[in-house]
Computed example of a mutant assay.
Amino acid sequence: MKITGIRSHVLQYDLDEELGYSQQYYLKRTAHLVEVSTDEGMTGWGECFGGGDIAFANKAIVERVIQPMVLGMDPLEREVIWHKVYNLLRDHGQKGMPIQSLSGVDIALWDLAGKIHGVPVYRLLGGAFRERIPVYGYGMMLQRVPDLKERFAAESAAISAAGYKAMKMKIGRGVKEDIALVETVRDAIGPDIGLMVDANHAYTAREAIPLGRELERLGVAWFEEPVAPEDRQGYRDLCLALDMPIAGGEGEFTRWGFRDLIHNRCVDVLQPEVCGLGGITEYLKVRALAEAHFMPIVNHVWGSAVAVATNMHLLAALPDLPGGAHPVQPMLEYDTTPNRFREELLTEPLRVGEQVKESGGSVGLPGGPGLGIEPDPDFIRHFTVR
């Protein structure tokens, strides 16, 4: 079997309301899917992290840079393909968009391998450590509206009522305003629901430390991306200053990028983004580094149903750390904001929200070979932008 083509599909549509985080606001939902074709008619699907106009740059890298490198190669030689592409890209981008683009191609190759062997990806990864995965709801995006606190209160209460036992909210509007927002959400959901906050690197360590102390008072489970990903010392300072876990890693790439982050214990909870860091092939190396340092992993998940399904397989195959009769289970991050690329993309939806409601907070493993999903070609044609 040989690779005969790699095609990018950038999907986009207009949102009804503007959403945002500490760095920007946006009015379009974007997803970047990658389709790898073979001479025997089998196809694999992956996804590249990077929304908005970033997706168009990544599309060019996938189709005009990576595709010529791998045409005619055996799709099962994932390590060979990964290292060939990385070595040829190394002088032009060891992080960022080239690695995001490689990630989507690599995930598609794993999907293809599962289909070739007739087994789910989690079987290729060594098997499932769990039959169900706890899910936390991610919502409460920032908006430029006067009633943001009231909206956060209503949205957090709705996420709790939908069956989620934990949730995450955005912050990053300023220390005083952030504290008021978190207080509002904590009052709305009560003391027993897990609450995490994500600042998307809005602060310096000097600002984040006193903010973190207030978040500890409010029972926040982790403080995500408090400082810029380049500020390793700032991350370490926060880990030492606060009892609350510090989370991060979604903006890091490859085993080499994660090496010092993990070795120096710059975070307490590692959040690798498989659609950005280099794909499943590289995720496994990052996972091994984290396990060697007894660092818990909670994957960062953002994108379409393809990204969600990919992470379900990774979390199913994630070993218990450190192990025991009653281990703490890894959680699936699930975006609860409106997203047609999550709900309507597949011929058979994942039904994550419905499963959470029915089960009281968890989701079952995907069935079928590969990622166990099939994107709807008519849906893709309708939402593709060129």
Results as ranks from 00 to 15, higher is better:
M312E: 03
H9A: 03
K168Q: 13
G44S: 08
A317N: 00
H9Y: 06
A316E: 03
I179E: 01
G323Y: 12
Q94P: 05
L19G: 00
L211S: 00
D39P: 01
I179M: 02
M97H: 15
G368P: 01
A307V: 11
D178T: 12
N299Y: 06
F379N: 02
E207Q: 15
F56W: 07
V145H: 10
F379R: 02
R386V: 04
E214P: 02
V185G: 13
R351G: 09
K165D: 12
V227L: 08
E131P: 09
V363A: 06
V121P: 11
I297T: 07
V197K: 04
L11T: 14
R173G: 10
L346E: 00
R287A: 10
Q94K: 15
A228D: 09
A221M: 12
Q24W: 09
Y164V: 02
I54W: 05
V175F: 04
L218I: 10
L289D: 13
H313I: 04
L112Y: 01
V135F: 00
E291S: 04
P272A: 02
V267P: 04
L350R: 03
E344V: 05
R173D: 07
P229C: 03
C239V: 14
F56R: 10
A153H: 12
R123E: 13
L315D: 01
P120T: 06
S156T: 13
D111F: 13
L124G: 04
G279V: 00
A57Y: 12
A60M: 11
P322M: 08
Q23C: 07
Q233F: 03
I107R: 11
A307P: 09
F223M: 00
G219K: 09
I373L: 08
Y334N: 04
I179Q: 01
R259H: 02
E183W: 02
A228F: 13
L27R: 15
S304V: 14
P330N: 14
A180L: 13
E224S: 14
D231W: 11
S359N: 14
M140E: 04
G114K: 12
M167I: 08
L33F: 11
D178A: 11
I280R: 15
Q329D: 04
H9K: 02
L314E: 08
E183F: 08
R144A: 12
I193P: 01
V62A: 04
I297Y: 03
